[in-house]
Design a protein around this nucleic acid. Sequence first.
DNA 1: CGATCCCGCCACAAC
DNA 2: GTTGTGGCGGGATCG
Length: 381
Amino acid sequence: MNQMDESIKKVSLLPSSATHHHMYCRKEKSLGLLCTNFLSLYDKGDIQSIELGDASRRLGIVRRRIYDIVNVLESIGILERKAKKEYSWKGFDGMVNALKELKESALSDKNFSSFVRTRALGDNGDEQSSDSNNASGQDNSSNADQFHKPCLPSKEGCLPSKEESKREKSLVLLTENFVKLLLCSDNQLLTFDKASKTLLEDNDNSLQMQSNSKAKVRRLYDIANVLSSLNLIEKTREIGSRKPAFRWLGISGTPENGSLLLKKREFGTDITNTGFKRNKFDGSAFQKMENKDFRNDINQKTVHQPQQSKHSSKAVVYGPFPAGFPKINDNQKNEQILQDRNSRASSYRPPYYNQALSDIFDHYVEAWNSWFAEVTAMEAT
DNA sequence: CGATCCCGCCACAAC
DNA sequence: GTTGTGGCGGGATCG
């Protein structure tokens, strides 16, 4: 009965203007991209306070995503929660401080460091070819119970220290521990595998833990995306095994002037991220979007389009840039991190090279234009 | 097909 | 009740 309703409802959502064939690109909606946009919106120097509703509106994304971004940014010290729906911008300096504290905390926390040593950073890969079933259980002597860490000293003048326990729930804690891990494994590659094994205390595989960590792993992806949009880490692959891995870039991955975005937005584009839904493209996308304010917002801006990728000059390039397009000229900065990165030589080549996106982009703009026409027409009535 | 991870339901806390 | 937060995991995309 219910299922029936569901499917019917979905079908009926199909807009009359089903002109745009479905062309959903997940990358255009990635958390990392959203984070980049978020930063370019607020890393302007004179921003003191950030109101979440405002951010949501101006970025054209649902509130839920703002929480994701804000939570990890807070863990990194870039933001600080002031009150409901309100954060203050701490920016680069805040991040530097937070990272320093995280590192100190990690180093002094013997639980953490020993835990890391035994589980995560046992260098060379283990290759058990067959039967990996309930193999060695020899390690985990004392199941390393969470390294809790209220790294941020409760100097909060604003918040009652009462509910601080609740704060360290998950995304924030996970982020902090992830960063600590990265800080400890400095300049070494940290494989995704090791990271998740280490962070998601799944000593022993009970079905409970199994599914639990499976859920948590998704969060790890989220966090990694945000961190990489900050150029704090880079997604790579292990040289031999091609296993996904992270490399810590740290402060050196950011410009020296204290701004957070290595890669500024180029040709002045809008940074909203409204657009097509994942499954059924729907013209009702806009009706879903919060309110009408964001439409006004869009009005004042130009055609929105997928942003330039984070990931220093490698990886994907969005947009219809012809070959000779006046591309970024922050190559100097890229050089800077490249230098820094050479500590282990091992240059990494982007596993994928995006080109088809040019074409897609055209469709994207076209679709958006027609949609925009609809909206303006509606408003005119 | 496995890895990645966006989307949004919904629980629960805070008004 | 309404609103703000944010776990959580289904299932769409990517590689």
